[in-house]
């Protein structure tokens, strides 16, 4: 009896190869995600290096020239960045006010019943594939803009893509902002009401400032999403690099260019191929920075109420 007791006591120290194996596998699964990031940086970096190794190409030229014409060996990223910036700015100009106002309404004003009807609308908008937004931009918004601007606007234009992109990002900004507003404790609102503030004064002067870090983070994530968005601009913004900040012009964004060129017949080890990786690397670094900044804002500036 005593012998058995002793044996069973020892069990806890017994090596269990099965358990250790599973734990190792689970660890591998966890670490795999880190490998994905490493692979992105490594693979994009490797091809981008090949691109910059080309004698005609230098970093300075890449970051300063405003012409992207592979035919004559000109690769100036600004021709693509200008379109990315224009569409993203339009998108944020649409999505920020609308998203923020939606968030304030849902969090501060809406009754439980109204919320349960309105919230799904935003969720449906968030779930629609971007290629469908592309269809909407080209075949609904563009004809309307064409009616307004007549000949002033091109068939493919950045305005239409930007507007629709704004609608696409709206739910993201709305839901992140709403989370931030909801995190503001009730006592702050009650305090404001007790001082005789109206609901609006409470919302705009008490709750909104308290949630500002979360809202800032939402905007930055929204910008990052706009910069990386591909299908809307590929369908509606135009097919050809064009250094222009005029929303009525056709121009190609970084993502749109990658999609168009890689969609054709692309042979490996050409400068066309490697140049796409240089663009993708930039895209990755820009969105990564934006995402990190957004997380930093949340952690650094979060008001803590405890």
């Amino acid at each position: 009896m005593l012998f058995i007791m002793k044996r069973s006591f020892d069990l806890s120290k017994k090596p269990r190869p099965g358990e250790s194996l599973i734990e190792a596998l689970l660890f591998a699964a966890g670490v795999l995600s880190v490998f994905v990031t490493v692979a992105i940086v490594f693979e994009l970096g490797k091809e981008a290096m090949l691109f910059f190794a080309d004698p005609d190409m230098t970093w300075v030229k890449f970051f300063t020239m405003t012409k992207w014409q592979p035919g004559i060996g000109q690769y100036g990223i600004w021709a693509l960045v200008s379109a990315t910036m224009t569409t993203s700015v339009i998108a944020i100009l649409i999505a920020l006010p609308l998203g923020l106002a939606s968030a304030v309404y849902l969090s501060e004003y809406a009754s439980h019943r109204a919320r349960s009807i309105l919230k799904p609308v935003l969720e449906i908008l968030a779930g629609i594939p971007t290629v469908v937004y592309g269809y909407f931009a080209l075949l609904f918004v563009t004809p309307i803009l064409k009616n307004i601007f007549k000949d002033g606007i091109q068939v493919y234009n950045m305005l239409s893509a930007g507007l629709v992109m704004g609608i696409m990002i709206l739910p993201l900004i709305a839901s992140m902002s709403e989370d931030a507003l909801n995190a503001v404790p009730r006592s702050l609102r009650e305090g404001a009401y007790a001082m005789g503030a109206t609901k609006l004064e409470t919302s705009l002067q008490i709750v909104l400032p308290a949630a500002l870090s979360g809202i800032g983070a939402a905007v930055i994530v929204g910008i990052s999403r706009a910069v990386g968005e591909t299908m809307i601009v590929a369908v509606a913004a135009g097919a050809g690099p064009n250094f222009s900040f005029n929303p009525l012009d056709a121009a190609e964004t970084m993502t749109g260019h990658i999609a168009r060129i890689s969609g054709g017949d692309l042979s490996y080890n050409t400068i066309d191929y490697t140049s796409l990786f240089a663009i993708a690397l930039m895209l990755f670094l820009v969105t990564l920075t934006l995402n990190l900044v957004s997380q930093w804002i949340v952690n650094r500036f979060r008001e803590r109420y405890e």
């Binding site: 995600s33 994905v36 990031t37 692979a39 992105i40 693979e43 994009l44 490797k46 091809e47 994530v221 990052s224 999403r225 910069v227 990386g228 968005e229 591909t230 993502t255 990658i258 999609a259 890689s262 796409l276 990786f277 993708a280 895209l283 990755f284 969105t287 990564l288 934006l290 995402n291 990190l292 997380q295």
Partner: peptide, 18 residues
């Protein structure tokens, strides 16, 4: 968290290369 925010087209480039 950061991987969730990487643009999908970058994953496409990764898939193309790897």
């Amino acid at each position: 968290t950061n991987l969730a925010g990487v643009p999908s087209i970058v994953y496409g480039m990764l898939g193309l290369a790897v």
